[in-house]
Design a protein around this nucleic acid. Structure first.
Length: 432
RNA sequence: GCCCUGGUAGUAUAGUCCGGUUUAGUAUGCUCGGCUGUCACCCGAGCGAUCCCGGGUUCAAAUCCCGGCCAGGGCGCCA
């Protein structure tokens, strides 16, 4: 019996009449006098262990007094049952306690008594065991693996940019400063420069990287540490990578629908696969939509959160692009239109009303880059390393990045980004 | 950084407006006992809360006032 290999509960359910070894956590026990039931859970699901009074395991249970989340290993026979709701149960022959759980638990793992997000985050490892939270991260895994699979199949190579960087001179977002021996360094707010350096040599690259922003924001859609799924492609303009982005999005959502049907059901989600090509609204179109609603808006400004929602409501599509942004709203490296340098080849992707991705065609011409730096009020000397990259045969290139937590939010229907980050870092939270 | 709302057993809530029989209620959890087909089992008994912290008003504060900390929401900020 000892030579039996441990199998998952979902697999055990299919082995009617067979001897199996399973192990997991005690979901709950139901003691009906001399009849005893234990619901055992592992990563794949749960199953009822039925212990009749003539079974020697009954005495073991009486002695052990199993509690929630105790970890046990069971060998026994899988039997079809007319009485058990799952139509299958395990009649155990042996039961071994692997570890005890303290009681009472800090939160209800079965999910019946709802705990606040803050409590759940404080005991995140236990929260991971609830059906809801475990579903979120099983879906996130499929998002990530689908992203990698899609780009690998398209001939992209995964790269590894650094997270510690020397310079904060890009301007804009606040960076976290860290000591670095005799120097000062920063946590990267974006892999931008590195992905461009790779793309102008490897042509097609992607990466999944954490980034840090030291802004003191306190909102349901911002964290100080997030993960990005980034792409950079040479010999591609903004339209080419927008096409890549919508295909990637559809591939990811399709995969989630296929592979996570159980998890989506637990979350009560019914997601639609967006139809491509996605609508491409220009920034000016979006402004006109707003002003047609009587909204005060000056061309060149960024949309406020309520305005972004308003646009999404008017467009109605679950996912759409806003492209051709005013150069003031985008980074210095965004490629300006030849006939109108006030507008750049830049786009945002809105999905379920929130911005999940943005990208641009980059400037690959050193002289133009210097000119744009000056226009933005930045000192080209501070960017000499960056500009130099494009002085040795840099092809035109474009790229984008998707915020992993934000995409997870929109797919799982969560309205707080903390739900979709295993160990969120925000203004106040640094542990666990 | 601003505005709104909240902080009560392990968890989640009622009570707070309008201060006083509130021994701070309920659900769930936990402990113990009973029960042969349960499935959020059921039944009985019990445990568990300096009512977030500090100060003030008052004969009297979970309850009113001020400050702090924390949480949730709305904004801002976020190339």
């Amino acid at each position: 019996m000892e030579c039996l290999e441990r199998i998952l509960i979902e697999d055990a359910k299919k082995r009617l009449g067979e001897q199996v070894r399973i192990s997991g956590w005690v979901n709950r026990t139901r003691d009906i006098g001399s009849l005893k039931f234990v619901v055992l859970r592992d990563l794949s699901g749960d199953i009822q262990i039925t212990v009749k009074p003539d079974n020697p395991v009954s005495q073991i249970l009486t002695d052990l007094k199993l509690g929630r989340e105790d970890v046990v290993e069971i060998t026994g026979r899988v039997e079809a049952s007319q009485i058990a709701h799952a139509r299958v149960e395990v009649l155990p022959e042996s039961l071994k306690l692997l570890n005890r759980s303290k009681q009472p638990l800090p939160l209800d793992v079965s999910g019946n008594t709802k705990a606040e997000l803050d409590t759940r985050l404080n005991f995140r490892f236990l929260d991971f065991r609830t059906p809801r939270t475990s579903s979120i991260f099983k879906i996130q895994h499929v998002i990530l693996s689908s992203f990698r699979e899609f780009l690998t199949n398209k001939g992209f190579m995964e790269i590894q940019p650094p997270c510690i960087i020397a310079s904060a001179s890009e301007g804009g977002a606040e960076l976290f400063k860290i000591p670095y021996f005799e120097k000062e360094a920063y946590l990267a707010q974006s892999p931008q420069l590195y992905k461009q350096m790779c793309a102008i040599s490897f042509e097609k690259v992607f990466m999944v990287v954490p980034i840090w922003r030291a802004e003191k924001f306190n909102t349901p859609t911002h964290l100080n540490e997030v993960r990005q799924m980034d792409v950079e492609q040479a010999f591609a303009d903004d339209e080419a990578v927008m096409k890549l982005l919508e295909e990637a999005l559809v591939h990811i959502i399709k995969n989630v629908k296929e592979k996570n049907s159980k998890e989506l059901q637990i979350l009560g989600r019914n997601i639609e696969i967006p139809k491509t090509p996605l609508r491409r609204l220009t920034y000016t179109d979006a402004v006109e939509l707003l002003t047609s609603r009587g909204e005060e808006f000056r061309w060149g400004d960024d949309f406020s959160k309520p305005q972004e929602k308003m646009i999404a409501e008017m467009v109605k599509d679950e996912a759409f692009f806003i492209k051709n942004w005013p150069s003031d709203q985008k980074a210095f490296y965004a490629m300006p239109y030849k006939d109108n340098p006030n507008i750049v080849h830049a786009f945002d992707l809105l999905y379920n009303g929130i911005e999940i991705s943005s990208g641009t065609q980059r400037i690959h011409l050193p002289e133009l880059l210097v000119e744009r730096l000056k226009i933005k009020g930045l000192n080209p000397d501070d960017f000499s390393h960056y500009v130099e990259c494009f002085s040795y045969g840099a092809p035109p290139h474009s790229g984008w990045s998707i915020g992993l937590e934000r995409l997870t939010m929109t797919i799982t229907g969560m309205n707080n980004i903390r739900e979709c980050c295993m160990f969120p870092r925000d203004r106040d939270r640094l542990v666990p």
